[in-house]
Nucleic acid binder design. Structure first.
Ligand SMILES: [Mg+2]
Length: 508
DNA sequence: CTAGTCACG
DNA sequence: ACGTACGTGACTAGG
């Protein structure tokens, strides 16, 4: 077996190679050098599926079914394992040929396959978490929640389950508080946006906002995470490579890509992610990655030059599009520009922009028109991509990653418009995913070449997080920054900001 | 199991 | 005139 796995002249295909090599890695055995992962290959061919079970691969690519029953006298687990190996070996060349004819061999072989072992290693290393700090935080929050409950019940004139949107809506009705907005099922909406509006007039709305924030932190993080800390003091979550339709990774069990960072209270959670004694955390994140990619893809001269000149892109937009002049003017217009710059990558319309910025629809319409008048290349892109998707059925990232849009010609306006927005966003988000994966592969390799102990421990879409011995910090930081900034050569520079700290918050 | 909500990029 | 910003995952309530 060992001879087969280490024989360089044999082609070896796996189904879910991260599980295979992760298990080996855990035993201290070097990962197998695999020529194929059929699950990942199927994901690259069509990343829009929810999963890629072996039954599907057999059916779709070999036109066969897996056995409906186990032959007499054969152990079920043994049979299914052999069958999995058989189908994997047979389907691998079929998938390879499809990748080749799609011109996707490089994204598969040079990005996705090398990413697998990097992810396996990251999962194995895990993240150290201060469980006691989280438990203390949870206890503290719980007291505050009880105090808040009492105030809420006093205002409502009765007790109710604050965690139930339905009951919150009922309380609002009893107090004659009009929210205006309804949910998809006709219920009164009590979402954050609605509550912020109501908070202008009603104290209860602000209290519910506060309650929700604290309860979220309590349940999802402060109480959940300590239970997941293993004997080594670390959390070993899963990084999924075949889930997101755009090429991004996803994180589960637990999700470590949505650790709070925005609110002061939430930042306490982030502070509980710490290095081992003698180590520090290094956080490296791309500055404006998606906007830089948008500039590159659209070849918009104005935005491209702004990035080349090292401009503050939002301030630049504020001046060029919205005519900001003096400092005071700039501050407000920069805020608007930032929201528009983000929204553009999601194909925001006047309606969406108006509610986000707090201006009228007519004003929002003018803002978007002015934006496109300045960034003409971006307007062209917004027109071209949906056409491309309608013509080809898919769009692709800079590195050949595809996403299909089967409903982009739907007769239903809403369905069609949604797919058009998804199509507009995909090359941007998809290319960002490509670049970050390339960076992960290259950083990992460079750290190994230099024989450093520094370990990559998390990826959060445009950020890589590392744990490094203190004596390696300078060298590792330089390697990380260099490899991330040179992961792709675009017509605009890629800029990475590196921070070091004794917890995830302070490393920012 | 689905809906509603909210944490992140 | 339609519905209205992309991509995720987890928790709670309620059926
Ligand atoms: Mg960033």
């Amino acid at each position: 077996m060992g001879d087969i796995l280490t024989n360089k002249f044999l082609q070896k295909a796996a189904f879910d190679a991260k599980s295979v090599n992760g298990a080996l890695l855990k035993l201290g055995i070097r990962p197998v050098d695999l020529t194929d992962d059929v699950m990942v290959a199927a994901y690259i061919l069509d990343p829009g599926r929810t999963n890629y079970p072996i039954d599907f691969l057999a059916q779709a690519y070999l036109d066969t079914d897996i056995a409906r029953s186990i032959p007499d006298g054969i152990d079920e687990a043994a049979f299914r394992t052999a069958e999995l190996a058989d189908i994997t070996a047979r389907v691998a060349p079929v998938l390879r040929e499809k990748l080749r004819s799609n011109d996707q061999e490089r994204v598969y072989a040079e990005i996705e396959l090398p990413t697998i072992d990097v992810l396996a290693e990251m999962e194995l290393v895990g993240m150290k978490v201060d469980g006691d700090a989280l438990i203390r935080f949870a206890a503290d929050i719980k007291q505050q929640l009880e105090a808040l409950s009492d105030r809420l019940f006093a205002i409502a004139g009765r007790e109710f389950n604050i965690g139930s949107p339905k009951q919150v809506g009922e309380v609002f009705a009893e107090l004659n508080i009009e929210t205006g907005k309804k949910t998809a099922t006709g219920q009164i909406s009590t979402s954050h946006d609605v509550l912020v509006e109501l908070a202008q007039t009603y104290e209860i709305a602000q209290l519910i906002i506060d309650y929700r924030e604290m309860d979220k932190l309590r349940a999802t993080y402060a109480e959940a995470l300590p239970k997941l800390i293993r004997d080594d003091g670390r959390i070993h979550g899963c990084l999924n490579q075949t889930v997101a339709a755009t090429g991004r990774l996803s994180s589960t069990d637990p999700n470590l890509q949505n650790i709070p960072v925005r609110t002061t209270l939430g930042q306490e959670i982030r502070r509980s992610f710490i290095p081992e004694k003698g180590n520090k955390l290094i956080s490296a994140d791309y500055s404006q990655l998606e906007l830089r990619i948008l500039a590159h893809i659209t070849q918009d001269a104005v935005m491209t030059n702004a990035f080349r000149d090292g401009e503050d892109i939002h301030a630049n937009t504020a001046r060029l599009v919205f005519g900001a002049t003096d400092e005071k003017d700039l501050k407000e217009k920069r805020r608007l520009a930032k929201i528009v710059n983000f929204g553009i990558a999601y194909a925001v319309e006047a309606f969406g922009l108006s509610t986000r910025v707090g201006i009228s629809r007519a004003e929002a319409r003018k803002v978007i028109d002015d934006y496109f008048a300045t960034y003409k290349g971006i307007r062209k892109y917004m027109d071209d991509i949906p056409q491309q998707a309608k013509r080809d059925g898919f769009v692709k990232s800079l590195f050949g990653r595809r996403r299909y849009f089967p409903s982009i010609n739907d007769r239903n306006f809403t369905v069609r418009a949604r797919q058009e927005r998804e199509a507009i966003n995909m090359p941007i988000q998809g290319t960002a995913s490509d670049i970050v994966k390339i960076a992960m592969i290259n950083v990992d390799k460079a750290l190994r070449n230099e024989k450093l102990e520094t370990k990559m421990i998390m990826q959060v879409h445009d950020e890589l997080l590392f744990e490094a011995p203190v004596n390696e910090i300078e060298q590792a930081s330089a390697i990380i920054k260099r490899e991330m900034e040179t992961a792709a050569k675009l017509d605009v520079p890629l800029i990475v900001e590196v921070g070091v700290g004794d917890n995830w918050m302070d490393a920012k």
